[in-house]
Design a protein around this nucleic acid. Structure first.
Length: 556
RNA sequence: GCCCUCGUAGCUCAGUGGAUAGAGCAAAGGCCUUCUAAUCCUUUGGUCGUAGGUUCGAUUCCUACCGAGGGCGCCA
């Protein structure tokens, strides 16, 4: 009996009561949702599970919540595995299930193994998830690192719901930003200081040196313009290779690296503009070509082709969106930093102008900034001074697992403070180790069990009657719902928070219940049965860590 | 001025209408001749920014205000 089972039972009961006329929806009330919320009550004395379904739906049937609860509870009490049903307060229905029916879950999880926690909410959906997308002017900084961790984890969560996900990285290697990068390389190669608006830092020196070493011609003897172009071309390649390598080492591999320029070279930008013209959403003014985004809720119209004939940034976005759609993606999700929140309206307007559905075909997730601290003091970062803390710096300081976990365990709506000093000094206090240790413990317990002859040769769930076993089973039952919610709300941090709860519940169980008998003791049914529960906890911890891209070590 | 996000324990953060608001860290104390003590247990710690409103019920939804960060280009 899991909460999902109980929820389904309640839905069935309501349908049956409607069928035999004991319940009737009031006029004007639509149909009821397919599932009802069954949760662990905060106070365990209230029961194993509780639902507020009576308070929510009684009105729709023209009843008061208590009476509705009475009607439901009579039927619920007949459900197999339900031991007792209480009604409390304004109409809470509190359910008590037998240890045997609750314990069945342990075996089910072990047998489902990697499939436990997966769902079908997004079965058959083709999703495009674009994240990081930093231009190759330097290494990935903390902001990009956060999106790499969160984005990849979100992709994994979507995949766990059956979606076919393409991880995509959009970049540009031309333009003002890149010019600054190229000028900085050139200046450094000549031994000059970084340009006023350029980039500093050791990586500029490294790239400049490598460009000089790996290029046959003597770049520095070329005319200024040609030299800069040589540094741009070679420097971008080297920088981008480094970025890809950093991401790969971070456990994030993109399916598509999309080059903005390809949209211009293929004529896709012109096609997108033509399409919008045909739809009547373009107009000319002051020598420029505009998209009338105000028709679709933007607060001002947007220039697509500037009066000097050059394309504005949004021109690429128009074509890029159409390209994604033409590749068969029903949903295109963009993860952007808070400094891009002003894009949302124009992007949604663009989506609507093409006749698509904003917030469905196009979805934008805005993530807040990462603040770096050192001993509680903000670290001032400057691209020019080269004091930017990068993905590699973070990984070097705390390792991939701790870095990904620290970045993925908080809501993207919140600014995140990362204190390098603290993470370096107190790695043992990092929550990721708490979770990983719990997983390692399940493995070592299983190993010890095997060596002492405790095997999963029998399973008697009625023996899982200790309070900590009830708690552990209840917690393990939540994984499918947590993953589904993480997917629905685009919030992978829910998985991390859940794992911390699982780890705590597991540790408490471990403290109270032994899988192997004390020395000299006989191996009994309860030991063999508990091994199933131990292994089930291991499966849940491993599956959850997988969703975060964090390793599940066998021992620590 | 307008727009977005945030404001919850000393710190970092969970909690998108339910019962007595949680975790980790920090502080104080307690358990290893028994499967991993990176675990566990106890204690201390709160005007959920402020003020209204919506309702059976609000940390959660609405409004205003205060505070923090970000954004309001024919830049990319």
């Amino acid at each position: 009996m899991t909460p999902a089972d109980l929820s389904a039972a309640i839905v069935r009961i309501i349908a049956a009561l409607q069928a035999d006329g004991r319940l009737a929806l009031k006029d004007g009330e639509g149909q009821l949702p397919a599932e009802v919320v069954v949760e662990r009550p905060k106070n365990r004395e209230h029961g194993d599970w509780a639902t507020n379904v009576a308070m929510q739906f009684a009105g729709k049937f023209g009843m008061n919540p208590r009476a509705f609860a009475e009607l439901l509870s009579g039927e619920l009490a007949k459900v197999d595995g339900v031991e007792k049903v209480d009604i409390a307060g304004p109409g809470f229905i509190n359910l008590f299930v037998s240890a045997a029916s609750a314990g069945e879950l342990a075996k089910a999880i072990v047998e489902a193994d990697a499939a436990y926690g997966r769902g079908t909410d997004l079965a058959g959906v083709k999703l495009n998830l674009e994240f990081v997308s930093a231009n190759p002017t330097g290494p990935i900084h903390m902001g990009g690192t956060r999106w790499a961790a969160v984005g990849d984890s979100l992709a994994r969560v979507f995949e766990a719901q059956g979606a076919q996900v393409t991880r995509e990285y959009y970049f540009n290697d031309h333009g003002a930003q890149i010019d600054r990068f190229a000028r900085s390389l050139l200046a450094r190669a000549k031994g000059e200081p970084a340009p006023e608006d350029g980039y500093g830092g050791a990586y500029i020196q490294e790239i400049a040196d490598r460009v000089l070493a790996e290029t046959a011609t003597d770049i520095l003897s070329l005319p200024e313009v040609e030299a800069q172009e040589a540094f741009r071309a070679a420097g971008v390649d080297l920088m981008f290779a480094e970025i890809r390598e950093s991401l790969h080492d971070f456990g994030v591999d993109f399916d598509v690296f999309f080059h903005e320029n390809s949209l211009y070279e293929s004529g896709a930008v012109q096609k997108a503009i033509d399409k919008l013209k045909a739809l009547g959403h373009m107009f000319e003014k002051d020598g420029a070509l505009w998209l009338r985004t105000t028709t679709f809720g933007d607060d001002r119209d947007r220039v697509v082709i500037k009066s000097d004939g050059e394309a504005a940034y949004i021109a690429g976005d128009l074509a890029y969106y159409l390209d994604k759609r033409s590749r068969g993606f029903d949903q295109c999700i963009y993860m952007l930093g808070a400094d891009h929140h002003g894009y949302i309206q124009r992007m949604m307007a663009m989506c609507a102008a093409f006749g698509d559905k904003p917030n469905h075909n196009l979805e934008i997730l805005i993530g807040q900034m990462v603040n770096l601290l050192r001993d509680g003091e903000p670290v001032r970062m400057s691209k020019r001074a080269g004091t930017v803390v990068t993905m590699e710096d973070l990984v070097e300081a705390v390792g991939v697992d701790a870095a990904r976990y620290a970045l993925a365990r908080s809501s993207i709506n919140s600014q995140l403070d990362i204190d390098l000093e603290q993470l370096q000094k107190k790695t043992n206090d990092n929550p990721v180790f708490y979770v990983q240790y719990a997983h390692a413990r399940t493995k070592q317990v299983a190993k010890n069990a095997a060596s002492l002859g405790v095997e999963r040769t029998e399973f008697d769930p009625s023996l899982l009657e200790h309070a900590t076993e009830s708690e552990l089973l209840a917690k393990l039952s939540e994984l499918p719902r947590v993953v589904a919610q993480a997917s629905e709300f685009r919030e992978p941090h829910r998985v991390a928070r859940y794992l911390e709860e699982v780890a705590g519940t597991y540790h408490r169980w471990y403290d109270a219940c032994r899988v192997t008998p004390l020395s000299g003791g006989q191996v009994e049914s309860v030991h063999r049965t508990r091994l199933w529960l131990n292994d089930a906890a291991g499966v849940v911890l491993r599956n959850g860590l997988d969703l975060l891209g964090v390793s599940a070590p066998e021992r620590m």
